[in-house]
Amino acid sequence: MRNVNSFNMYKTRTISITSGKGGVGKTTMVANLALALSQKGKKVLILDGDLGMANVDIFFGVKPQGNIHDILAGRKEMKDILTEVSKDVFLIPGGSGVVEFNHMNHFERRAMVEAISSLPLGFDYLLIDTAPGIAENVLFLNSAAQTVSVVITPDPSSFADAYALIKVLNKQYKVNHFAIICNQVRDEQEGLNLYQRFNDVVNRFLYIGLDYWGSVPTDVVLKKAVQQQRLIVRHDVGAESSKAIRQVCSQIERSSKQVESTGGMQMFWDQVVGFA
């Protein structure tokens, strides 16, 4: 097996995109952010970590030739399932019915590490699309990432469930810094107000830091793009929602300069498979 520490030669920023509940537009956000980053000359790897309902591939109009479960079962290698979904955007498909990462046995962990060691170097970003909620595999993926970004909406249940997710990650996994993306808002002002209310509530009960990464309005163009499973930053670059996503992308780039140079993709995977 190749020395997996070779990943440390290239620093990959690892970011989880997560939420307390479903229906907040998380996967749409991941796919569009990945494409927007690639349009800025970055090389992006997406891990579809929504293991029961993996669907990132649908937005790119591709059909993967396998998923993580095939690797754990020994049926395929990473090169067989790694899918280039767009120029400089690659996907590790999650599939469905995949064993939870934290329940892997020794042989499955070894298979995962060997598969990871075969990944090409040179990714600028690893974006992890998690399942919503506080299931163990969701917490595991989030806690292993350098940055946990939480998508919230004006829906009161989204607000409450996002708080619950942050509380569990803080108390159980010692995550003390998060980024917030406000989605499905009317405009930037509503998004900023939503963030400020959320920040006030969180900091009343938890000692953590929250960064505001921006807001994405749900305009008519975005609604239509989601219904048609199209990427708005590709097909409707002039839409307000498309501009907003690119602004979030710029915020990610700015925040990347502040992240410590330690960690990266290998540390993420080490923690996920329990080698850290």
Rank of each mutant, 00 (worst) to 15 (best):
L192H: 11
M112K: 04
I245M: 12
R110V: 11
Y125T: 00
E100V: 01
V185F: 02
L194H: 07
S16Q: 05
I252H: 02
T153W: 03
F60I: 09
G214S: 07
M1R: 10
P156G: 05
I58D: 06
A160D: 08
G133D: 06
F123G: 08
V150C: 07
Q227K: 15
P64C: 11
A164L: 08
S38Y: 08
T262W: 05
E253M: 13
E260G: 14
A34C: 10
I166S: 04
M112W: 06
L35E: 10
N137A: 00
A164P: 09
I46P: 02
V148I: 14
A162F: 06
S118D: 15
L119I: 12
L91H: 03
E190G: 04
S215W: 04
V273E: 09
S16G: 07
L91S: 03
N199D: 15
T218K: 14
S96D: 08
Q196D: 13
E136H: 11
N8M: 09
A160T: 15
P120A: 10
V151W: 01
I252L: 15
V248Y: 00
Y195W: 07
F7Y: 09
V24F: 06
N102Q: 10
T18S: 14
D161S: 06
D88N: 15
Q184D: 08
M9H: 11
P156L: 03
G263Q: 03
D88G: 02
L45G: 02
Q258I: 11
D270E: 15
N32R: 02
H103T: 13
P64I: 11
Q266K: 13
L231N: 05
P217G: 04
K43Y: 04
I15R: 02
D129P: 01
G95V: 08
F90W: 12
A73Q: 13
I181H: 00
I15W: 02
D88W: 07
A179R: 02
H235A: 01
D270T: 03
A111V: 03
R2I: 14
T153L: 06
L169H: 05
N199M: 08
L206Y: 05
I71T: 11
V89Q: 00
A225M: 03
L192S: 12
L194P: 00
K224V: 02
V221Y: 01
A244Y: 03
D50G: 01
D270Q: 14
L45P: 06
V148P: 04
V221N: 05
E240K: 13
V151Y: 02
K171E: 15
E190V: 13
S16A: 15
K11V: 07
E108M: 15
V201F: 08
D129Y: 07
E253R: 07
Q228K: 14
V56F: 02
V185K: 02
Q251V: 12
R230I: 05
D187W: 05
V24D: 01
L127W: 05
L169N: 10
S261E: 14
R109D: 00
L82Y: 01
S255I: 06
M53P: 00
K224D: 13
T12W: 05
I68E: 05
S215P: 09
G52I: 10
N137S: 14
I116D: 03
N199C: 12
A160W: 00
V272P: 00
I46S: 04
N176C: 08
V4C: 04
N102E: 12
A164K: 13
T153C: 04
A225L: 05
Q184W: 00
V113I: 13
D155C: 04
